[in-house]
Simulated assay, not measured.
Amino acid sequence: MNDDARTNIGTPAPTPAGPGSAELRDQVERTRDELGRTVEALAAKADIKAQAKEKAALVTEQIREKTGHAARLVKDKTPDPLLEKAAQAAEQMEETAVKAARYATDQTPDPLLEKAGQAAAAARANRTPLLVVGAAVVVFLLVRRGRGHRR
């Protein structure tokens, strides 16, 4: 490659002004358009992350549809008295849980509640190290248990 060709990279080549020049320009433009579409199609095929997101969205939508359909079938086939009893039982369980939570909060000393809140905040802030330590403890216990069975 000579120096003149290197310095003209990216600059348009002079176009001939003859009778076939308009035809050549049209052909070049069509070729550029086709090449652009081909590059876009190849880029879309190579974008694995986008394909995975698209597939996950499709599967999620299918699951939602099937779950909704199953819920409607169950509700349609369940007798009304049973539905009413289930709703009442759920309501009673919720009330009992609220009462238990209030009782536990009322009976727990304030300093202990504050410490528990601080511990929860620290755990949320340091989630990764806590998970690593927890995993290490589990591995240690499994190894120790495995050695105990060999003796």
Rank of each mutant, 00 (worst) to 15 (best):
L142A: 13
R30M: 08
E114K: 15
T7C: 00
K75R: 15
A52Q: 15
E23C: 04
L58R: 09
I63C: 06
D110N: 05
K85S: 05
Q51R: 11
T96R: 07
A17D: 09
E114D: 15
D80T: 14
A122T: 08
I48M: 06
E23A: 03
L131E: 15
A56C: 02
A13S: 05
Q118E: 15
K66C: 01
E84Q: 15
G36D: 04
D80V: 13
E54R: 03
Q92F: 09
G36L: 12
L42R: 14
L112C: 07
V139S: 12
Q92E: 13
V98I: 15
N2A: 00
G36V: 04
K77D: 08
A87C: 00
P79E: 14
T105V: 07
P16L: 06
P16F: 03
D106R: 08
T128I: 12
K49F: 04
T38C: 02
N126L: 08
I48P: 05
T38Q: 04
A46Y: 00
R64D: 15
L42F: 09
T60H: 11
T11G: 07
K66N: 03
G20D: 09
A44Q: 14
A101N: 01
K115M: 13
Q62K: 10
H149M: 11
T38P: 01
G20E: 07
S21L: 01
D4Y: 00
K77W: 06
V138T: 14
M1R: 02
K85C: 05
D106I: 07
A89L: 12
E54W: 03
A5N: 01
A90P: 02
E65K: 15
D26E: 13
D26A: 10
A135T: 15
R64C: 00
A86P: 01
A121L: 05
A56S: 05
D76M: 07
D47P: 06
A97G: 11
P19H: 02
A116Q: 10
V138P: 03
K45W: 00
P14F: 06
R72F: 03
K99Y: 00
P19C: 06
A5M: 09
